[in-house]
């Protein structure tokens, strides 16, 4: 016993180092499931509060840019309004659709309060949380395109895993041919991502749009992700496609959280059929 104490006293520096290093590395690698990533809600709340203060300055400086992006988005939305169209076939006007439609996707607008693009596992925080109806696993988009997926929520803030995080994969498809694959970030350039699983008989052209496939019940179908800039195939039967991301993550100030009102129903159904 005395020898043990003497040993600990003699090597206390190294032992303490090992203890601290183990705790820290456990924290790092416990994160393989990103849901439980941030066990401490406290850090999210403190961090959220501080970051919202910092970002208010950035928001102010980038107001001009933000306005322009919002204006562009408004233009697009107005163009897709039903009132901007004129009926070509008069008979169709007799069909009433009012009660036949039900809203599937609900959008919650949010302000980005913390953001990074220069790490491997980038994260983002927004100023809407549980009390605003945000839940984990909801999709997040901007006016330009897909942003990411909600990872964790506190009462007033949420953290988002953006496309620029090597842990995230998004189900995506080519707009013109409909082939789908999975899109991920390779950790290099914050402007581009990689799309995989497209068989090599598909004709590809630079500039082709890559959109969400809608298979994951997180994003609606057809939300812009980016455009194809380059592609090649290394040996296998599948292309490796470089996608230029539509969202400029370095200038992101506003985002929308997407609530899919049929998500629970769909997941329940998939779970039931999965057990057969």
């Amino acid at each position: 016993m005395r020898n043990l104490i003497r040993f600990i006293l003699k090597y206390n520096f190294i032992i303490l180092f090992i203890v601290f290093e183990t705790i820290a590395l456990l924290l790092v690698f416990q994160r393989n499931n990103y849901q439980q990533a941030f066990a401490f809600n406290l850090s999210r709340n403190i961090g959220g509060y501080v970051n919202s203060r910092i970002f208010s300055l950035r928001h102010y400086l980038e107001l001009h840019e933000t306005n322009r992006a919002l204006l562009k988005e408004n233009e697009r939305l107005r163009n897709s309004l039903l009132s901007s169209y004129k009926l070509k076939i008069p008979a169709a006007a007799e069909v009433e659709f009012d009660s036949a439609w039900v809203q599937q996707y609900n959008f919650i607008s949010a302000k980005v309060i913390a953001n990074s693009v220069n790490k491997q596992n980038n994260f983002m925080s927004i100023d809407k949380g549980r009390i605003h109806g945000v839940k984990p696993d909801m999709g997040v988009i901007s006016g330009e395109g897909v942003v990411g997926i909600v990872a964790g929520v506190s009462d007033n803030f949420s953290t988002i895993i953006p496309v620029l995080n090597i842990d995230l994969r998004i189900s995506s498809s080519l707009k013109n041919t409909g082939y789908f694959g999975s899109l991920y970030w390779d950790g290099k350039d914050p402007k581009t991502a990689i799309m995989e699983d497209i068989p090599h008989h598909v004709t590809l052209n630079p500039g082709d749009s890559v959109v969400t496939s809608g298979y994951s019940a997180i994003f609606p179908e057809g939300i812009m992700i980016g455009t194809v800039t380059d592609y090649d195939f290394e040996g296998g039967n599948f292309y490796t496609i470089t996608v230029n991301l539509a969202t400029d993550f370095r200038k992101l100030n506003y985002a929308y959280v997407i609530e899919n009102r049929f998500r629970e129903e769909l997941i329940e159904l998939e779970n039931v059929s999965g057990h057969d």
């Binding site: 180092f17 601290f20 820290a24 456990l26 924290l27 790092v28 403190i46 961090g47 990074s116 994260f123």
Partner: peptide
Amino acid sequence: LLSLGFVLGLTIDIFSNTPGLHAS
């Protein structure tokens, strides 16, 4: 020295969403 390093790193971690990374 080690304790200060740990606390300092953990503080940075809290603000940059990287649990344990800076601490280690």
